[in-house]
Design a binder for these strands. Structure first.
Length: 451
DNA sequence: CGTTTTTGACCAGCGC
DNA sequence: GCGCTGGTCAAAAACG
């Protein structure tokens, strides 16, 4: 006879007043009531001493419950630590961006100052703050005062110049400007500068989009000249009137390469998974806008900390700066085969719901069960001997930013167990709730329907 | 029914 | 001024 003990049975046993024939429930066993009536069947082969075996099982179950409780407490502590680390990281990142921005604007001012000499000194000294209004808000008199103001470049120069002036270059806020005015100028400088420059990421992917933790709404699609693959236009839908936009397009020469171009800065809080990428794009934009843009022309950046948080491959990927009169672009190329470049996982996921299972936080579960931020695409490496663990370990060791991002990823996962469940469920309306992209099968050709 | 995608039309910038 | 191109808009369609 094969006896079966379930948790339900255990609870019934424990709830009964024990008699002399049975061992009294230990303290650990008394805790077992919290488990509930989940049916956890345990097969017992020994039927001769069911009570004794039942008692041993109860003890084991109690010990397991204690361990479970301890693990829960440890998880809570770790979660709190990770949240703290994440907050510190975000705060430091924001501060870095602010400092870089101020440095850029100061450089811009000095450059203008050197070039234009004292001619603008008098002008700068009397520039009204209304000059910093957006193009649509400015008055004809402003155009006269600022000698043109016809192009966005001029707007940027003027904003930069006046922001530097507001900070009096050395950082002292001009006493004649109120803090509100200064803040407004800074906001406008950020808006204008970040609206112009772009960060482009080239990565190999069989999928039509690169999950990045943000929510995107598609607002257009065009077939660009010279590339039969259509270009899709998305805008961030996480915040109201968020200026961030992105373009997604296949490379004409190699359709396995997905080119994602980001433009702008988010004006709303970002989910943890989106922060590293957003910070990196902002940093790239700020780097471009810094006074060193000339020296970056056609140069290659490697191991740049600015890009380190883009992905673990950033330490080896090529980041190039492509200046352009209308829209300078910083390109991060993750497709080069010369290093341990990380590529989007191919073929291993047959169900598209596994490819876009990221409803809230943008984390991807790899085939090995490991969760990674979707901005750290599931990795495969050209070197056969190099395992995923090796790559990740090396990347973590090299890159503190990646470390922080992984902390964020793990923190989010622990913090919201529902995410795990959500991963296995199809999203509403067949769209990827993380990226708001259609949840298409992995190998669907890149057509106008697929993006 | 609400949300998102699709897609043709429209607009602005640029080169000739 | 004209045409081309990239980017955006907005009404209709699709989706669950």
């Amino acid at each position: 006879m094969e006896g079966k003990v379930t948790i339900k049975n255990i609870l019934e046993v424990e709830e009964r007043p024990y008699d002399n024939n049975k061992d009294p429930p230990s303290r650990t066993e008394e805790r077992s009531n919290t488990v509930g009536s989940t049916l956890l069947s345990l097969s017992l082969n020994n039927s001769e001493q069911p009570h004794q075996i039942q008692g041993q099982t109860l003890t084991q179950m109690g010990l397991l419950r204690i361990k479970l409780e301890e693990a829960k407490k440890e998880n809570q502590n770790l979660r709190a630590m990770l949240n703290q680390i994440n907050e510190n990281y975000a705060a430091l990142n924001n501060r870095l961006l602010l400092v870089m921005q101020q440095h850029q604007l100061s450089s811009s001012f000095r450059k203008n100052h050197d070039l234009q000499g004292n001619r603008h000194d008098a002008e700068k000294s009397v520039l009204p703050t209304r000059q910093f209004l957006k193009m649509g808000e400015r008055s004809p008199s402003d155009v006269t005062i600022t000698e043109g103001f016809a192009s966005a470049d001029n707007i940027e120069k003027n904003i930069g110049r006046n922001l530097a002036y507001a900070h009096n270059v050395e950082g002292e806020v001009n006493s004649q400007m109120t803090s509100e005015e200064t803040k407004r100028i800074e906001d406008q400088a950020t808006e204008v500068s970040c609206r112009k420059a772009r960060v482009s990421i080239r990565a190999r992917s069989d999928f039509s989009v690169m999950g990045d933790g943000c929510q995107w709404r598609k607002y257009g699609q065009k077939t660009a000249k010279g590339n039969p693959c259509p270009r899709a236009y998305y805008r961030c839908s996480m915040g109201t009137a968020c200026p961030v936009r992105k373009q997604v397009q296949r490379c004409f020469k190699d359709e396995t390469i997905l080119i994602t171009t980001y433009e702008g800065n988010h004006n709303h809080p970002l989910p943890p998974a989106a922060r590293p990428l957003a910070s990196s794009t902002s940093a790239a934009l700020n780097m471009f806008l810094s006074g060193s843009t000339t020296s970056l022309h056609s140069s290659t950046l490697s191991n740049s900390s600015l890009f380190s948080s883009l992905s673990s491959s950033a330490s080896t990927a090529m980041a190039t700066f492509t200046p352009s009169a209308s829209c300078p672009t910083v390109t991060l190329d993750l497709t080069q085969p010369t290093n341990k470049y990380l590529q989007f996982q191919k073929a291993t996921l047959s169900d598209h719901r596994q490819q876009f299972p990221l409803p809230l936080n943008g984390y991807t579960q790899t085939s090995s069960g490991m969760y990674l931020s979707s901005m750290f695409p599931t990795m495969i490496t050209p070197e056969k001997n190099l395992t995923l663990v090796d790559v990740v370990s090396e990347a973590i060791a090299k890159d503190p930013s990646l470390k922080a991002a992984l902390f964020t990823a793990i923190s989010s996962l622990i913090g919201d167990p529902q995410n795990i469940n959500n991963n296995s469920q199809p999203s509403k309306s067949g769209y990827d709730p993380c990226s708001n992209m259609p949840a298409i099968p992995p190998h669907q050709p890149y057509t106008t329907q697929s993006i």
